[in-house]
Simulated scan of single mutants.
Amino acid sequence: MNAIMTTPEPPELKKFSGLQRAAALLLVLGKEHGAPIWQQLSVDEVKELSATMAQLGRLPSGAVEHLLVQFTSEIHSMASLHGSYETTERLLSEIMPSDKVREVMEDIRGPSGRTMWDKLSNVSETVLASYLKNEYPQTVAVILSKLKPDHAARVLAELPREIGVDVVHRMLRMDTVQKEVIQEVESTLRTEFMTNLSRAQRRDPHESMADVFNCMDRSTEESMLSALDERAPESAERIRALMFTFEDLMNLLPAAIATIVRKADKRSMALALKGAPEEMRELFFSGMTQRAAKLMRDDMASMGPVRARDCEEAQTALVRLAKSLSDSGEIVLVDPRNDDAVIL
């Protein structure tokens, strides 16, 4: 196959930004060929490209031809096409300002949904309530009024009682909210909440490997990390910092412990606590009713001597359960790297 020849870039194109070139190319492609591309764009991207297109002015035919040839040449030279967050970010960086690229990428990495309120509906009520409890009650009332009733109800149930009652009272007295107020709330949610949420959801290979190590028994974990210390000490240190261990469960909030107690296999939990320090046992007993705690103690006593390996495996199972509940948004884990931060 003959290579597609390219000509020197016309002077008229040298002053065109990446965004202007993209707008010109879409204008040239027209409805028939450009429609599939337009359909993949977000509303904001359509607005931005449309505004740029409307201000392009006259573009000589030579410049138009060069754009098409350049586009065809780039497609022709591709052996294959791989779409990923990284390739998408690289492409957007060539046609948008850096702040816009950052906003788009954080948006698509975050919960799915066309509007901010759709996205919030895909955020766990526990995570959302954890953020909202620090906001002014009137702002919380505005946000909850925009959510679906079932989701708003679950968020209210997660808020401290006094805050929840105050928010309900304000929602009852709330008149039609001005459009400017809604836009300001959306902007705050996007910059303060969704941005942090999407950043928390980014994962690097060390995080994935830490999850793998969390599922190993203690002896295998220690053996592998010791070997990694010799070959890649920085990676070993990073994995250790990212691992969530049985001991880290001590940092969880009472509500998270209660959720784990409710979801865990009772026999496995008794075995895990059998080999745990008394402080850890009391923490889990505090998440049960008095009767359930007594039954758990009786179960542990009736086990008699147990193998340390069996206790460790049961403790690993509790850690896996905690991570699973965190991934689904049912609980929030305290990040062992930072006492003030949380991971989702």
Results as ranks from 00 to 15, higher is better:
residue 161 R to T: 12
residue 209 M to S: 05
residue 123 V to N: 09
residue 85 Y to I: 08
residue 329 G to W: 05
residue 291 R to K: 15
residue 211 D to S: 08
residue 32 E to M: 06
residue 207 E to G: 08
residue 293 A to F: 03
residue 167 V to W: 10
residue 292 A to M: 09
residue 83 G to S: 07
residue 126 T to V: 15
residue 225 L to W: 07
residue 259 T to N: 08
residue 94 E to Q: 09
residue 84 S to C: 04
residue 61 S to F: 03
residue 185 V to G: 15
residue 45 E to F: 08
residue 14 K to G: 02
residue 325 L to T: 10
residue 187 S to H: 12
residue 80 S to N: 04
residue 98 S to K: 12
residue 315 Q to T: 02
residue 36 P to Q: 13
residue 9 E to C: 03
residue 10 P to E: 05
residue 83 G to T: 05
residue 89 E to K: 11
residue 177 V to A: 10
residue 255 A to C: 00
residue 24 A to M: 02
residue 78 M to Y: 04
residue 311 C to M: 06
residue 336 P to N: 12
residue 71 F to Q: 07
residue 322 A to H: 11
residue 58 R to W: 00
residue 274 K to A: 02
residue 247 E to R: 15
residue 3 A to E: 09
residue 119 K to S: 10
residue 228 L to P: 04
residue 306 V to H: 03
residue 20 Q to M: 06
residue 13 L to K: 04
residue 77 S to G: 08
residue 176 T to K: 13
residue 94 E to P: 04
residue 164 G to P: 00
residue 252 L to C: 07
residue 143 I to L: 11
residue 203 R to K: 12
residue 146 K to G: 04
residue 118 D to V: 09
residue 166 D to W: 02
residue 13 L to N: 05
residue 301 A to C: 01
residue 101 V to L: 01
residue 21 R to A: 02
residue 145 S to Q: 11
residue 311 C to Q: 05
residue 276 A to P: 02
residue 229 D to N: 15
residue 236 A to F: 01
residue 194 M to G: 10
residue 289 T to D: 12
residue 294 K to Q: 13
residue 312 E to Q: 14
residue 189 L to M: 12
residue 303 M to C: 03
residue 296 M to C: 12
residue 202 R to S: 05
residue 164 G to H: 09
residue 51 A to Y: 08
residue 227 A to S: 08
residue 298 D to K: 11
residue 135 E to N: 14
residue 141 A to S: 14
residue 311 C to R: 10
residue 37 I to H: 04
residue 176 T to M: 11
residue 291 R to T: 15
residue 169 H to N: 07
residue 204 D to R: 09
residue 127 V to N: 07
residue 219 S to Y: 01
residue 295 L to P: 04
residue 299 D to P: 03
residue 79 A to Q: 12
residue 27 L to C: 01
residue 170 R to W: 04
residue 277 P to D: 14
residue 163 I to W: 03
residue 128 L to D: 11
residue 116 M to Q: 11
residue 96 M to K: 11
residue 313 E to F: 03
residue 338 N to C: 05
residue 190 R to E: 14
residue 159 L to Q: 11
residue 99 D to E: 08
residue 117 W to C: 12
residue 243 M to R: 14
residue 75 I to F: 01
residue 221 E to I: 02
residue 212 V to K: 12
residue 328 S to E: 15
residue 239 I to T: 05
residue 41 L to S: 05
residue 66 H to A: 03
